[in-house]
């Protein structure tokens, strides 16, 4: 039980990454693939945050001069996640615009039906 308690964030993060990866690999519908990419991104962000977590930690903000600096969580992963989220949004926007164009051209979003380019 304590194993689960200790590692639940890691398990959750990698669970999300795996779900996302599986969606990308298995699904045929482009929108679902994009959703899979998004889930994977979320899992990665959660993983990064979990790495910097300190038990019973607080946010690293000195909102008033009395705040003590002990037990503050690591600020670096939070900064990294901020960047990673923005990058995820950027990729998502581009992928969706490509999906719109793809649908205009082929009339379908099923990736198995879109196989004009040979390997």
């Amino acid at each position: 039980m304590s194993f689960l308690q200790n590692n639940i964030y890691y398990i959750g993060a990698f669970g999300l990454i795996m779900i996302g990866l599986l969606t990308v690999l298995v699904k045929h519908n482009l929108i679902k693939v994009i959703i899979g990419l998004s889930i994977m991104d979320t899992g990665i962000n959660l993983f990064l945050i979990a790495i910097g977590y300190l038990r019973n930690g607080t946010a690293p903000i000195f909102s008033s001069p009395e705040v003590e600096s002990i037990l503050m969580v690591d600020p670096v992963p939070q900064a990294l996640v901020l960047t990673a989220i923005v990058i995820g949004v950027a990729v998502l926007a581009l992928a969706l615009s490509l999906a719109i164009r793809l649908y205009k051209h082929f009339g379908t979003l099923d990736l198995h039906k879109i196989k004009e380019l040979k390997w």
Binding site: N6, G52, L54, D74, P75
Partner: peptide, 16 residues
């Protein structure tokens, strides 16, 4: 990387 106890040198420097 045990969960909930790591604290990096860089992170501590930033907080301090």
């Amino acid at each position: 990387i045990p969960f909930g106890s790591t604290s990096s040198d860089v992170g501590e420097y930033y907080i301090d």
